[in-house]
Amino acid sequence: MKTLFKTALCVFFAVLANSALAQPLYEAYYRSHRDAKFDSLFSRMTDHGWLFLKDDPALHVSPDTFIMRYAMNLGLSEGYELKAIKEETETPEETKLVFRHQLFQLYYKNIPVDGNEFSLHSIENVLKTAHGRIVAGLDIDVTGAIDAAVALQTALDEQGLTQNDFDGNTLPTGSLTLARKDEHFLKESYRLAWVFDLKSEKIQEPYRVYVDARTGSILKKVPLFMSCFAGPHRETSNAEYPRPGLNFHKPWVASTMIPNYSRYLNGHSTLSFETEQVGAQYRLSAYNNKLNTRIDLNHTGQWNSNPDVFNPSTNWVNSNHNATTAHWLAQKKLRNVSIVVSEKWV
Results as ranks from 00 to 15, higher is better:
residue 237 S to C: 12
residue 263 R to A: 12
residue 135 V to M: 06
residue 189 S to A: 07
residue 258 I to K: 13
residue 222 V to F: 07
residue 118 F to V: 08
residue 284 L to V: 01
residue 90 E to L: 15
residue 222 V to N: 08
residue 26 Y to K: 00
residue 39 D to W: 02
residue 108 Y to E: 03
residue 268 H to S: 07
residue 29 Y to W: 15
residue 228 C to G: 13
residue 148 A to M: 12
residue 274 E to Q: 10
residue 2 K to I: 04
residue 323 A to Q: 05
residue 49 G to F: 11
residue 69 R to K: 15
residue 178 L to N: 07
residue 180 R to P: 02
residue 327 H to K: 01
residue 1 M to P: 00
residue 182 D to I: 00
residue 5 F to H: 13
residue 17 A to T: 06
residue 192 L to I: 00
residue 41 L to M: 07
residue 195 V to C: 08
residue 170 T to S: 14
residue 252 W to D: 10
residue 334 L to H: 15
residue 9 L to I: 12
residue 34 R to L: 08
residue 212 D to H: 03
residue 308 D to A: 11
residue 16 L to M: 13
residue 296 D to Q: 02
residue 87 E to K: 14
residue 257 M to A: 08
residue 75 G to C: 07
residue 35 D to C: 09
residue 50 W to A: 09
residue 101 H to Y: 12
residue 99 F to R: 14
residue 274 E to R: 12
residue 304 N to C: 05
residue 130 A to L: 03
residue 327 H to F: 05
residue 63 P to V: 01
residue 240 E to P: 05
residue 11 V to T: 10
residue 229 F to H: 12
residue 48 H to D: 15
residue 26 Y to S: 01
residue 57 P to D: 01
residue 276 E to K: 00
residue 306 N to F: 02
residue 224 L to P: 04
residue 334 L to N: 14
residue 233 H to G: 13
residue 48 H to S: 10
residue 242 P to L: 02
residue 185 F to K: 01
residue 193 A to D: 04
residue 88 E to A: 13
residue 249 H to Q: 13
residue 221 K to I: 06
residue 241 Y to K: 01
residue 156 L to I: 05
residue 66 F to D: 05
residue 115 G to I: 00
residue 38 F to Q: 02
residue 119 S to C: 14
residue 110 N to T: 10
residue 96 K to S: 12
residue 13 F to L: 09
residue 336 N to Q: 14
